[in-house]
Amino acid sequence: MTDTFSPVATDNDDARTASVPQQPAEGELRPYTAILLASFGGPEGQDHVIPFLRNVTRGKGIPDERLEEVATHYRANDGVSPINQQNRDLIAALETELAGREIDLPIYWGNRNWDPYFADAFKQLAADGHQDVLVLVTSAYAGYSSNDQYLEDFERTLAETGLKGQLNLVKVRQFFYDKAFTRPNEEFLAAGVQDVRSQLAGAGRPDGKIKVLFVTHSIPTAVAQRQGPARIKELFGTDVYTAQHQAIADYLMGAVAEAEGIDYQVVFQSRSGSPETPWLEPDINDQIEEDAAAGYAGVVVMPFGFISDHMEVIWDLDTEAKETAQEQGLAFHRAPTVGTHPEFISGLVDIMGEYIAGEGGQPLASGEQTVPGDWSDLTTEGGWDTPL
């Protein structure tokens, strides 16, 4: 039996299988003059690591000695997080796509935790004469750190820089359910299944059982349980953060012929903080061990919680999860993240086009919902937050 989420049937099942995307709120369709790529940031040298981690843990009172314990991942990579270069590559790819469509919008870049900071980006936007700015955040899902925290960052930074009322920021919707995100992941899933089958055939185990592990960042259980809207909890029978991931996992397994009949599961990685604080489970390493004991011969790891191969992907999956699989004698394949995949880039510009008014005030483009569900109020009142 496929290891997947299966909600209890209700009279509201049509709402779970309907296709209702988020739409720009009133006033958000306008002729923008610039785009801001908003991201997490990361160190780019050994001297940056501890100051960066101080920024990440700001207000939590964590001493440098403890921060050094978690700096191991960055130290092993010469103190460099891949995320900044990946964002540069993403910006370059988006600029090329925009130019190809003759959309004349410059892209600026700001980070929450490292240079270039939001304050510097906002000041530069204002100095260059921009007022209406479309913001693309480097996260596909709705959650506190991927939506609310950015909105809080923007409000605080506008106040601190004295630019409130001068810069009008509109954040682009979530895109986990859009073709921009699903099409590349369909390709990655098919290739991953084929690779694990090839590994098993080469090892003399052509009939070995395969499992797909869809992995995302864990969050504290209490935080997940607070997320609305309540109707999604009722429809899916789980917290909204998990429901978003389960919905796309279900879609991908149904859309990829190579994955037919294969078991799959949403799992989590990168928990932190006090071990007494419950976080969403199971952890991917624990699940790999359980799967090996249950007779699986190989795993396809889909890091669909992320859009690029940043440090947590490289360390938690390419190092720790891979080692766990090897210790258990399992074939292992870690799929890519969407990165600068051409369909991802083209799809992101389509989504941004929903907000950009062209001739006659009509949107320049439109995304395409592929994952079923009514996701229209994920970030409206009753969801994580309300738009700026």
Rank of each mutant, 00 (worst) to 15 (best):
M1I: 15
T2H: 15
T2S: 15
T4H: 12
F5N: 14
V8H: 13
A9M: 10
T10A: 11
D11K: 10
D13L: 09
D14Y: 11
D14L: 15
R16L: 05
P21Y: 04
P24M: 04
L29M: 09
R30D: 08
P31H: 06
A34W: 03
F40G: 06
P43C: 05
G45Q: 02
Q46A: 15
D47I: 03
H48P: 11
P51G: 01
R54I: 10
N55F: 01
I62V: 10
P63R: 02
A71N: 07
G79D: 13
V80Q: 06
N84I: 12
N84Q: 15
N87V: 07
E95C: 06
E102W: 00
E102M: 02
I103V: 03
D104N: 12
P106G: 07
I107V: 11
N113Y: 08
W114A: 05
Y117R: 05
A126N: 09
D128Y: 06
G129T: 06
Q131E: 10
V133P: 03
L134K: 09
L134E: 03
V137D: 01
Y141M: 09
Y144H: 13
S145P: 12
Q149N: 15
F154V: 09
F154C: 10
R156D: 14
R156Y: 14
L158C: 01
G162I: 04
K164W: 09
Q166Y: 01
L167D: 02
N168T: 08
F175A: 09
R183K: 14
N185A: 03
N185D: 07
E187S: 10
E187N: 09
E187W: 04
F188C: 01
A190P: 00
G192E: 09
Q194D: 13
G202E: 08
G204N: 12
I210P: 00
I210G: 01
K211T: 08
A222H: 12
V223D: 14
P229N: 13
K233V: 08
F236P: 03
F236Q: 13
T238G: 13
D239L: 05
D239R: 08
A247Y: 05
I248G: 14
L252P: 00
M253L: 02
G254F: 12
G254M: 08
V256A: 02
G261N: 00
R271P: 05
R271K: 13
S272T: 13
T277A: 11
P278R: 03
E289D: 11
E290S: 12
A292F: 05
A293N: 12
G298L: 07
V300S: 04
V301F: 12
P303Q: 09
I307G: 03
D309W: 07
W315Q: 08
D316K: 05
T319H: 13
T319S: 15
E320S: 10
Q328C: 12
A331W: 00
F332I: 12
R334N: 03
A335D: 02
I345Q: 04
V349P: 00
G353N: 01
A357Y: 00
L364K: 02
G367R: 00
G367I: 00
S376Q: 07
T380S: 14
D385V: 15
